[in-house]
């Protein structure tokens, strides 16, 4: 019963952690725009938190480079299970326009397992909200004992 309660609370009130890997700021300010009056994801019980240990969902924007890789892994490992990773924007999906640049590893999925991909350059707030709600469905579907993993 306790597990069910926790499950319900997690889906009804997921907390977000946002990390900018090496994005151009376009997607970051769209993530922030989701929190503000016009889009207002707080009505779904979603809050942006600064501490990875409080977070259920990790929003990653931008390509991963050789320096931010370590920070991303560190944040991911600090988050408690079960957790979701949402990659936002074309850069986070594949490297986008920067894929040939010398300091870019590529998409986020080269470093950590990604659950939801949100496209767009920059991704629109509507698309980001859609991606997060898609991810929340995975919380209910995910079987017991299956843990997210770092690559």
């Amino acid at each position: 019963m306790f597990k069910k309660l926790i499950q319900k609370a997690r889906v009804k009130s997921p907390w977000l952690l946002h990390y900018d890997c090496s994005s151009c700021n376009g997607c970051d300010i769209e993530v922030l725009a989701c929190l503000t009056p016009v889009y207002d994801i707080e009505r779904f019980g979603i809050i942006n938190v600064g501490n990875p240990m409080h977070a259920d969902i990790l929003l990653v924007t931008g390509t991963v480079n050789y320096r931010s890789r370590k920070v991303l892994l560190n944040l991911f490992n600090q988050m408690p299970d079960p957790k979701l990773v949402v990659a936002i924007g074309t850069c986070a999906l594949s490297g986008g326009i920067f894929r040939e640049a010398y300091n870019v590893i590529g998409g986020v999925d080269k470093v950590i397992a990604v659950d939801v991909y949100v496209t767009g350059c920059p991704a629109k707030p509507e698309a980001i909200i859609d991606g997060v709600t898609l991810g929340l469905n995975r919380f209910t579907q995910r079987k017991e004992g299956k843990k997210a993993h770092a690559r």
């Binding site: 390509t63 320096r67 920067f98 040939e100 640049a101 010398y102 300091n103």
Partner: peptide, 11 residues
């Protein structure tokens, strides 16, 4: 610094 360096000028 360097967390956001992509090497854009080389593109």
């Amino acid at each position: 610094l360097g967390f956001v360096h992509r090497g854009l000028e080389m593109l």
